[in-house]
Amino acid sequence: MIRYALSCDHGHEFEGWFGSSGDYDDQQGRGLLACPVCDSQAVRKQIMAPAVTGTRRTVRDVEPARMQAMMMEAAGRIRAHVEANFDDVGDSFASEARAIHEGRSEERGIYGQATPGEVRDLVEDGVPIAPLPQEPPKKAELN
């Protein structure tokens, strides 16, 4: 089955289902297509994106427990990358992030701690920041 987005010469939009693209052409040629709103037979296909299916698995195909494990692994990798490649500025995060943003400190990746108020102020002032994913629990700590 093929679904086409259709419209009539009065601007009414609707859809039609056909067994094949040839079926649309045949029905159109025989005057069998009409607008369901105004009964106009001046019906034409609209531009629409094709619905393409593939064999790749989608997120919906992954069971929730596996999805959670994948997300925890990704978060752990992000955190490990940041800890290995960025400077830990501890409690000075807010002031150092602002200094880098304003050009008063060396441009570099940093991480550390900030209070909710400091985070709000940085965001409001346009300082680009993002939360660091929490450290994933150790396997020995899991049930």
Score class of each variant (00 low, 15 high):
residue 1 M to T: 09
residue 4 Y to Q: 05
residue 4 Y to K: 03
residue 4 Y to S: 04
residue 4 Y to P: 00
residue 7 S to D: 07
residue 13 E to G: 13
residue 14 F to L: 12
residue 15 E to Y: 10
residue 16 G to P: 11
residue 16 G to H: 10
residue 17 W to L: 13
residue 17 W to M: 10
residue 17 W to A: 07
residue 18 F to K: 07
residue 20 S to P: 06
residue 21 S to R: 11
residue 24 Y to E: 02
residue 25 D to V: 12
residue 25 D to H: 13
residue 25 D to M: 12
residue 26 D to E: 15
residue 29 G to Y: 12
residue 29 G to N: 13
residue 30 R to K: 15
residue 30 R to Y: 14
residue 32 L to P: 01
residue 33 L to R: 00
residue 34 A to L: 00
residue 35 C to M: 01
residue 40 S to F: 01
residue 40 S to Y: 01
residue 43 V to R: 05
residue 44 R to K: 10
residue 44 R to D: 12
residue 45 K to F: 10
residue 45 K to P: 11
residue 45 K to G: 08
residue 46 Q to V: 09
residue 47 I to M: 13
residue 48 M to F: 06
residue 49 A to Q: 14
residue 50 P to S: 12
residue 51 A to F: 08
residue 52 V to P: 09
residue 52 V to Y: 07
residue 52 V to S: 12
residue 55 T to M: 12
residue 57 R to P: 09
residue 58 T to D: 14
residue 58 T to C: 09
residue 58 T to R: 11
residue 59 V to L: 14
residue 59 V to H: 11
residue 60 R to Y: 10
residue 61 D to P: 04
residue 61 D to A: 10
residue 62 V to K: 08
residue 63 E to I: 15
residue 63 E to P: 07
residue 63 E to W: 13
residue 64 P to F: 00
residue 66 R to T: 14
residue 70 M to E: 11
residue 72 M to E: 14
residue 72 M to G: 06
residue 73 E to G: 12
residue 75 A to Y: 06
residue 77 R to S: 15
residue 78 I to S: 10
residue 80 A to R: 09
residue 80 A to H: 05
residue 81 H to I: 08
residue 83 E to I: 10
residue 84 A to H: 03
residue 85 N to E: 15
residue 86 F to N: 06
residue 87 D to W: 09
residue 88 D to I: 00
residue 89 V to Y: 00
residue 89 V to R: 00
residue 91 D to K: 01
residue 91 D to Y: 00
residue 91 D to F: 01
residue 93 F to V: 03
residue 93 F to C: 01
residue 94 A to D: 02
residue 94 A to P: 02
residue 94 A to K: 00
residue 94 A to T: 02
residue 95 S to P: 00
residue 99 A to T: 01
residue 100 I to H: 03
residue 101 H to L: 06
residue 102 E to Y: 03
residue 102 E to R: 07
residue 103 G to W: 02
residue 105 S to I: 00
residue 105 S to W: 01
residue 105 S to C: 02
residue 106 E to P: 04
residue 106 E to T: 09
residue 109 G to E: 06
residue 112 G to Y: 07
residue 113 Q to Y: 05
residue 116 P to W: 02
residue 124 E to A: 06
residue 124 E to R: 03
residue 124 E to H: 02
residue 127 V to C: 02
residue 127 V to S: 01
residue 130 A to R: 03
residue 131 P to E: 04
residue 134 Q to K: 06
residue 134 Q to G: 09
residue 140 A to S: 11
residue 142 L to V: 09
residue 143 N to M: 11
